[in-house]
Design a protein around this nucleic acid. Structure first.
Lengths: 246, 246
DNA sequence: CGCGTGCGTTGATCTGGATCAAACGGGAAA
DNA sequence: TTTCCCGTTTGATCCAGATCAACGCACGCG
């Protein structure tokens, strides 16, 4: 079924682009060595499913390059994206055997996988991996709760603006909401809809509205230019002051 | 402002009702002793605010008895509940100084508070607290993601049924969805609305509809009788099989 | 006792976003 | 080149849930 593309990736953890932010970021050289012995890389093409909900999981993993999504699907087909995985984000849960969500590559994707059993053993015996994983999980929990506010209470326009602002900030790297930013949307309209709890038609209409109002400019559907990140942030419904101290 | 009711609580951790499920559940006797030295109890009356969003937090805490809520509020007053805290649940984040959400007691509440600095020191030097906290945080993250599906994709009726089913299962203790269950709702209609991303009128109407359809019986507004937990679960929109293995 | 006040219910109407439907445009295959 | 396909846009209509409004009921208080 799955054809395996060449197993690329930085064989040496020292060269790894996510070395300083992933689960392994706190590890000492000897711990890194131990991780190297249990790791292997896997590549996926855009659109491929990494893990199906309900599958037995024999590994946990970090996103090295590319973007993946976490989605839940109801029997009748309603879908909700519950997570967007960027480089350095972690997939899987030590101590659980079955995947609760579908994991899908939305762009070409390289994952650094750790065999589950050795990884769990390492978690139990050395503190650095567990400490970092706790920190990352707490960050994800905060993000999930911010998303709950968006899903429960924001208007369609606010939802779109929030998503664009988040991607703009993550892509541009800068926390500051100053000046112009330009980036490629990594999601289709339908994926945006699944993330925001909307239909793809509403996403398209609100994108057009934001464009009409000059908040964003579209060149080529996916390439977004935000002339003023501050103006975009004003459309998110978020408290401007409260955001600053987060 | 805040008047302090008598500081009740099990002074000895050995007698604590949440001893086996809270952050401290993995601790050895010597570690418990260390925790005892940094802990103190605080009581709150139903309706009191435990922590305001933006407040400096000088402690982390476990819920001992009672129920508390975590809510986010937008400038214009829209509110979204992002967590429901039952006994043994943990509040606060080691390593962060400012509270991101309002924490409110919905019933009379007793919390076991740990001074933040000593607690953080203990997390850094002994693994048992951190390990348990990671496990609990991962559970909360799963719950938050389940809630994202509810907020983004479920109908009003499915939302109400899901909330009632969750409370029924947690209150009755039994994971099995068999037979009749009876319990008191710990939330007002407005709090339910804030949790579900609805208005209180819609909550009231859907409660009436579920009553009309015989899925629940109401005696005295808050006292709920679920004659058949299975029938209620069928109204949640959730995959029956998928739930089993979670 | 009458009165307010806090919850909850119910009714009438409105509306934001869903649904149904058609068409566009660019890239790849034929 | 033409055709097809996929992602996207736009239009017309519908409807679930929001909003506005009135009222019921239980409880505590002067």
């Amino acid at each position: 079924m799955t054809l395996h593309p060449p197993k690329i990736g930085p064989q040496d953890c020292g060269d790894c682009p996510i070395r300083h932010r992933a689960v392994c970021s706190r590890c000492e050289p000897d711990e890194l060595g131990r991780l190297e012995s249990m790791k292997y890389y896997r590549s996926f093409q855009a659109g491929q499913t990494v893990i199906w909900s309900g599958d037995r999981m024999e590994f946990v993993a970090s996103v090295v390059t590319g973007i993946a999504t976490l989605t839940q699907t109801m029997e009748d087909g309603r879908r909700q994206m519950v997570g967007l995985l960027l480089p350095s984000d972690f997939v899987g849960r030590p101590g659980r055997g079955v995947a609760p969500y579908d994991v899908t590559a939305t762009t070409d994707l390289v994952m650094c996988c750790f065999r589950k059993k050795p990884f769990e053993d390492m978690m139990a015996t050395t503190p650095h991996v567990a400490q970092r994983l706790l920190e990352m999980t707490l960050d994800e929990l905060d993000a999930a709760r911010e998303w709950m506010l968006l899903l429960g209470r924001k208007t369609a326009r606010e939802k779109i603006a929030s998503l664009l602002a988040i991607i703009a900030r993550r892509v541009s790297g800068q926390k500051q909401r100053i000046g112009a930013v330009q980036f490629d949307l990594p999601l289709t309209r339908e994926e945006m809809a699944d993330y925001l709890g909307l239909t793809l038609e509403t996403v398209s209409r609100q994108m057009s509205a934001l464009k009409r109002d000059g908040v964003i400019h579209l060149q080529e559907k996916r390439r977004i230019l935000v002339p003023d990140l501050d103006a975009l942030s004003n459309e998110t419904g978020d408290d401007q002051v409260g955001e600053m101290l987060a």
